[in-house]
Amino acid sequence: MKSARLWSYLIFLTGVMYFIIPLIGMFEFSLRKRRGEYSFDAYTSVLTDAQFQQTFLYSLLMALVAIVFGILLVVPTAYWVRLRLPKMRPVVEFVTLLPLVIPPVVIAFGYIRLFNTSSVLPFLGSQFGTDVLLSCGYVVLALPYMYRAVDTGLRAIDILTLTEAAQGLGANWPAIIFRVIFPNVLVAVLSGAFLTFAIVIGEYVISALLDRPAFGPYLVWIGSNKAYEPSALAVMTFAVTWGCMALIQVVTRFSKHTRTSI
């Protein structure tokens, strides 16, 4: 018994080290911009870079748009599938998993072929059109996570009876979705939103191929042109992603708390 426990600790420790040592190394390296002493020079250099601010804000905006699009697409879809097309659930689930299988390059080239300036829908002819396409691409990338999160949230409530109760009280479909279904899957939606955010902030392929000034391409550009700043950026990106994960946990805890306390 004892040795089995020891082994599991050892394996756990190995895993932690495998994960954390490169991070520590990277963090340590990012502090060495100034010769002979540790400093946050690389961080200040990055944060004061106008391009950093622009690309980060651009990606942030894209993330928000993708989150709103994603929620408006996924919540009603997942709800309708559970309510009226339960037999279709495996099919829909499969479709939402496709973005994990199909590389983003394919999506980007698909967009370029379908929506170029000489096509029927020349989205790529304007910056705004391209931005719309990019956020759609992000919605697709985040779809597997968003759908799963919302679907799990829907499983926790008796949507059929709640829907009928609302209908009986005179509610139409928008009222049912926005006043009954949505508030009851809010936690799930939020965790899907944070995941979307984490994906969008680091995304490179689609934004680079559509030539938009997003944060991902900036990361790559700075990686090939500077020494210490890329590490500082990578550390910050990790921090943001982890921050999102922590927020998901907090939100989940918080809602559980209100559910059980009397």
Partner: peptide, 18 residues
Amino acid sequence: PNQRNIGMVFQSYALFPN
């Protein structure tokens, strides 16, 4: 159903939890 103005009470209460 939302035009009929008929009240319904379910075995499972079906109150809106939020």
